[in-house]
Computed example of a mutant assay.
Amino acid sequence: MRILVVGAGAVGGYFGARLAQAGRNVDFLVRPARADLLREHGLRVRDLDGTVETVPVTAVTADTLTPGYDLVILAVKSYGFDAALKDTAPAVGPGTAVLPLLNGMRHMDALIDRFGADRVYGGVAMVQTRLGEDGEIVEVGELARLIYGPVSDTPVLPLEEVHAALDTGTFSATAATDAVQELWDKWVFLATMGACNCLMRAPIGRINSTEGGRDFSRAVFEEAAAVAAASGHPVPPRARERADRMLGDTTSQTTTSLYWDLTHDNPVEADHIIGDLVARGRALGVATPLFALADLHLRVYETGRT
């Protein structure tokens, strides 16, 4: 199976490197400067103990992209999604499946509109990595898991084949029977954590250990859960219990990449993770005042960066 990984950042770089190490036929679609770096130095992954692995990879750019891929894994930040979708389109043939590893649901709507539901998979990536200053992938935690499944009953590429390609033993790989629900479950959790971190400018443990903090984090979660329920994807008990445990922790130093970007003067995925949740709530008549405040906070931040 020919696999194209779009993006070689913290998510795409990590999972793509692990697939390449397992002998999968993987190309990376990246910008010219990143392509030159990968061709010269390979893709470097720094693990938790500081050891750096160098993985030889094949890098391609949009102007050299050709058809013939079986699976396209989209792993870009949401603010780069539109450009990535345009660059990727030539690689998506009649029998190509597209597996995005973005958060939220806006990208799913766009991919289904562009390619049709039978060529789109839902994908959830859970990995604790960051992109280092010199382009290496830096592990900051042990979590590395992919969950994926088709959104159509008649996918052009069967789930068994996708699972066989991704289940390499180098990370946790799970074939899902309801990938859309998995996406909603992660979105509710991630948006809640991100909104809490960004509004309070603190890890979740510090928020919850302060008087009134747990009431706040619980209220943020319930807003997101209400939007999910009104959209036809209520948070199931198991996911709710897991979220309650993690979002209610009083000692955890957990934050999100949204918070990391906010506190490091980087562009943020505000529209995709927070803004779209507010917009869907508004359209469905679900009040989200705390998320609306987080959305405003992040938009003011973005205005200050321009």
Results as ranks from 00 to 15, higher is better:
L143S: 06
D113K: 01
R114K: 13
Q128M: 07
T96M: 08
T170S: 13
E136Q: 12
F81Y: 08
E139T: 11
E142V: 15
Y121D: 02
G80Q: 11
D82N: 14
L99M: 11
E161H: 10
R145D: 00
L111V: 01
E136I: 03
L143R: 12
R119H: 15
E161W: 07
G135S: 05
L157E: 05
F171L: 03
G104F: 06
V156D: 03
P158H: 06
I147T: 14
V151K: 04
P90Y: 13
G95N: 12
F171T: 01
V72N: 06
M105C: 03
I147C: 10
V98N: 05
I147W: 10
R119D: 01
L85G: 10
L85D: 07
V76S: 05
T174P: 00
G123F: 10
L71V: 07
A173W: 10
D87F: 04
K77C: 06
P150K: 14
A62N: 00
R106G: 06
T154A: 15
T154R: 13
L131E: 06
S172G: 12
D109Q: 09
T129L: 08
L65P: 05
D82S: 15
D153A: 13
A75E: 02
P150C: 14
G93R: 10
T88C: 01
M105A: 05
V140K: 12
A83S: 08
T96G: 01
L65A: 05
L166E: 11
V140N: 09
I73L: 12
A125Y: 01
P158Y: 06
R106N: 04
G80S: 08
S78Y: 12
A125K: 05
M108Y: 04
